[in-house]
Design a protein around this nucleic acid. Structure first.
Lengths: 163, 163
DNA sequence: CATTGTTATATATCATGTTATTGTTTCGTG
DNA sequence: CACGAAACAATAACATGATATATAACAATG
């Protein structure tokens, strides 16, 4: 069966990038599922942003993540429910709500930074290591690579080597 | 403000691809909004699949588009509501529901193929034309290019030249 | 200093992807 | 041929992106 999105080339580049991105996230989710972490893979960028930049108001967090503000509001509510972030009022401006990592959130990020993220990053980097040439060719190579061995399988192998 | 997704490189490649894909689709949507077409940009791949491959059952359509079957069921219901596709029972297998373009759907695809898709494809191709090198660099160039001039502005210009 | 505009966030609604489940129909086999 | 397994599509429930709008706090000005 012909892959229409791939055949259409630049015309459907948006759909194709979304599709690859979703697959990568789903693969990564399977890695996380094997650990005991109650967080979706898509929430990690927010945690990583707080780790890199420190406590931030909602709007700046949205800017740092490149997504719209309501998405951040929702993610923050979810992560606050899980006890990983907390929200405090700004002193000088009562409108701003400053988001920061809780002690548990800090611990989760530290563990992830040490044990999980490097493996995922390495698996994705390996997947993309030998790519060169035009963008569409590189995307096709990524799709083929993921079909041959999804990220979670690549992490397994890398894990075995690292340990 | 630092772009955390970009900074994190391969670790958040999935989020980043999704983000770029969504932006491309939103830009394309703005092109379509200026025409009179009542169809979301994300529905065009389905129409294009029927155009390229002819009438197809739901499952094969899902395979051709690389998305899950329930997504196709929903899109087909939506496009059928708009009168662009229709569904008929298969003769030999009562389980299969064959999706095909209606006369209106056929006309829409023909117009799009002639007047719209070539411009969008050209605008996206131009955006990606001079890219080379590692994937992450190419993605950064695309992000910068879209920030400088989104697809709908590029289509305008291309349209002016072509006409 | 009251009113008016702006900014920051929350909420509502929609779009579109996912997985899990259910109900039919078909197939294969004892 | 009957019955259990498999295949196909629909539905339910959820995730996560978007835009539009409402609300509250701040700022600026006549």
């Amino acid at each position: 069966m012909e892959d229409v999105i791939r055949s259409l080339g630049f015309l459907c580049l948006g759909s194709r990038l979304k599709r690859i991105g979703e697959q990568l996230q789903a693969d990564t989710q399977r890695v996380l599922d094997r650990l005991d972490v109650p967080v979706q893979s898509s929430q990690y960028p927010l945690l990583a942003a707080l780790d890199r930049l420190g406590a931030l108001p909602v709007g700046e967090l949205a800017q740092a993540l490149g997504i719209a503000q309501p998405g951040v509001t929702r993610s923050v509510a979810l992560l606050a429910e899980l006890g990983l972030v907390e929200v405090s009022q700004s002193n000088n401006d009562q409108r701003r709500r400053i988001v920061s990592l809780t002690r548990n959130g800090r611990r989760l990020v530290d563990v992830a930074k040490r044990d999980v993220w490097p493996r995922i990053e390495k698996a994705v980097a390996d997947l993309c290591a030998d790519l060169s040439g035009p963008l569409l060719d590189q995307l096709a190579a990524i799709e083929d690579g993921l079909a041959a061995a999804p990220i979670d399988r690549r992490v397994e192998k890398a894990g075995a080597v690292v340990q």
